[in-house]
Every structure is written in C-alpha cells, then in structure tokens.
Amino acid sequence: MKARPRVILTVETSTIYGRRLLNGVARFQRSLGGWSVLLDGGQVHGIEPPNFEDIECEGILCRLTSPDWVEALKRSKVPVVDLNDRHGYLGLPRVSSDMLAIGRIAAEHLLDRGFRNIAFCGMANLNWSNERRAGVEAAVRERGNFCGWTDTEQEFQPRKNWSSEREKMSKWLLSLPRPLGIVACNDATAYSVLDACRSLDIAVPEEIALVGVDNAEIFCELCDPPLSSVVPDAERVGFEAARLLDRMMAGEKFENFNLLLPPREVKTRRSSDVLAIDDAAIAAALRYVREHACAGIDVSKVVSHVGVSRSALERGFRSYLGHSPQEEIRRVRLEKVKQLLIETDWSLTRIAEVSGFDYPNYIMVQFKRAFDQTPSQWRKHNQSNFTESLTQYPQT
C-alpha cells in the first residue's frame, strides 16, 4: 500500500480566515487528496522558523512565510506553497486573496449606495492593509472623492490603549465630510470605528456607512449596528493551494507563481444598508424609523420627531428611498421578523409583539406579499443555514 504523503500545515486556527482556509484544504482532501497532515495552528506571525531539514515531510502549506522563513523553507528542499498576506510575493509559489480586489469591492459597495466621500481605516505598516487601501483609492478615483486614511496599531490591546485609539479615531472622524463611507481593513478595525461613532453620537449608517473585511459572522452580528463585511474567498484559497501543493509533490515545477483570488461578495448588514442622504431631516427620520419601527410607531410620530410636514416627509422618502415612510416602517419590521424566525423558536404571536405588528395574521399577509413565502416556510429553509454558519468554522 502506497504511503500517504506527509504535509505540514502552518495555518492559524485563531482567525476566521485561517479556519476557512483550512476548510478549503479539507475539501480538497475529501475530493482529491489523501495526505497525512500535521497542523501547526499557532500564531500567524512573529516566531522564528523551525529547522525544516529535521522535519520529515513531503510538502508544506505555510501562512507564516516571511523573509526570514523563506531561506529555511528553501533549505528543506521540500515543495512549499506560500499563503502569507503580510509580505506579498517572496519568491515561493503563492496563493492568496487579491487585496486590491477586496478594497475595490468594498468601495464600490459604498459608491453604489450614493456615497461619494470615501475614507479608509487601516493598520500601520501591513502589506495587506496597504493593498486594500490602494484598491479603495482606485475605485474611488473613478466615481468619487477619496478623503484620506488613518492607521490603527498593529497589535491593539484594549486594556492598554483603547482610550487613546478612540481619541485618535474620533479626531479623524470629526475632520471628515458627511455623509461618508468608510472601508475598514478588517472587521476588528471596523468595530473601532463604530465605537468612536457611538461616542460622538454619529449615526451609522445614515451619516457614516461602514464596511469591514473577513465577514466573521458572529462578530459582525454582535456589532451595533450589525457590520457589513467583504467575504474573502478563503476556502477557495485553501483548496487551490492544496491542489497546487499536490501537483508540486508529484514533480511539477512552478516558477514565479502568484495566484490572487478575488473576494466572493459584500455581506450587507445594517452598517451600510442605506442610501447617502444629505437632507438632515430625512436622514433623522430614517434613523428614527430604523430605531423605533418595532416599538409600534406610525408616520405621525416620525413627523412629530423630525419637525417637518407629513407631505415633506413623504416627498423626501420617495425621493431618496423610492417608497413612503409607512413602507419603510413595514420593511424594518419585516426584517426583524426574518431575524427572529431564524434565530429563535418563538411563536408568530410572540414575534408580532416584539416586531411592532398588532396581529400575527397581519404578519402572514405582509410576509407572503414581500417574500413570496410564508413565515414557516422561511424559517424551515433559513434556520438550518443559520445553524450551519455557527458550526462550520469552530473556534479551536
């Protein structure tokens, strides 16, 4: 019986990107592979390279690749596929996400929503962050106004520098025009922007719309408001890297190979689910509706809150949103119904109570009209998908 090739995976399990990448490697294994795998799932950078010449293996998939690691990897004379995104191409066959494309798709998401002023919040002296910023700038040059960027610290330690980082972020935000779209280099950095907006009482997404990167789903849903995020195709990166390594272990040679894979999509959540509105009264009305629709408000309460006539409110909503204030109230309530159908096992009566509808039967009628499904059909189809999303990439 032919022995299985021994493969070392130096891929961190502490990040959502690393775990999804490993999921792609596992998918290759299930379909085409047959390796004996040693997983080193420790930190993603900052450690000394081991002596690979003393390690018995036939191939290596490496996320820790740095200039220091390259020489050690080359000395091993073992096929290596580089997965790093901190240093760019280092001369080893490499598969990675296309950072320019990630920045571009995030900026285009905001531009498509009418935001013409776009800024970027990155992390200092990191190649992948700088490339994402370059993608943002390239997209904005064609359609809008790039308002600059700020960088946060690479190693953010909340207990030590949360206040100073928030103060720096707040000063930067106050210097920028609004309405504004911001692309953050990753989801954690986007949270820092949200935290500063909250301290300044800046409405998100009405005044500042925000997009992160990585789509760490539970983290994004914990943000207030929930965070829109670019979905890198990390699973495909893992699959293609595994396939490349398999070919290299079979004797194929790859020179100057640097495969960059585009992101899948932007997962839209509330932090960017808005159109850019430069009318202060209409922006305030929209914010009020989104915060209070499920508390049973009607259009008269919106009119009273913003201090404009009902006719002016109607004209403003139709101009910016293409529908009436009442339709927006209904839309927000139905989105809440969808969320509760997926995330709870509550009855329709209970859901009606907390989503602003007077009667369960009215939910049935409006839901079927809006989504061409009954609430029970929606729950059956989507609740299983939600459960899978929580278990597909477990924390180790």
Rank of each mutant, 00 (worst) to 15 (best):
E388S: 13
V95D: 00
C220P: 02
S355P: 00
L92T: 04
F254S: 05
I277E: 05
L275M: 15
S347E: 02
E388L: 15
Q29T: 01
R318Y: 03
R166S: 13
I8V: 13
F371Q: 09
F317V: 00
P5H: 06
V11W: 05
R116K: 14
L174T: 12
R116A: 05
R318M: 10
F357N: 06
A190V: 06
Y393D: 09
V140W: 10
V308I: 15
A209L: 05
Y191R: 14
F371H: 13
S311N: 10
G316Y: 00
R19W: 09
Q29Y: 07
R94T: 07
L100S: 02
N361P: 11
A72Y: 09
E53A: 11
Q373G: 01
Y362N: 15
E291D: 14
V37R: 04
Q154M: 12
G356Y: 02
E343T: 13
P262V: 05
S66N: 02
L321V: 02
A284G: 06
S76A: 14
V44E: 12
I297E: 08
E221D: 15
Q326A: 14
N256F: 10
R379E: 03
R113C: 02
D246R: 06
W378F: 15
S272R: 01
D246H: 09
S199N: 13
V80E: 00
A293W: 00
R94Y: 11
E314G: 10
R331G: 03
S319A: 12
D68P: 03
Q29D: 00
L210W: 02
I47N: 12
L390F: 11
P93C: 06
R350D: 14
P49W: 01
R166W: 14
E265M: 12
S272Q: 02
R104N: 08
F386V: 08
G307P: 01
S175M: 08
D201H: 13
L126H: 09
F367Y: 06
A242D: 04
A72N: 09
R143A: 13
V136F: 05
E335P: 10
L83S: 06
V289K: 08
H323W: 04
A293Y: 05
S309L: 08
I218L: 15
D246L: 02
N361W: 14
S76D: 04
I282E: 03
L194S: 04
L92I: 01
I282R: 00
A234N: 07
V11A: 00
W149Q: 11
S319D: 14
A190C: 09
L9D: 03
H305N: 12
P394E: 04
G251V: 03
I329Q: 08
S311T: 15
L313C: 04
E265V: 06
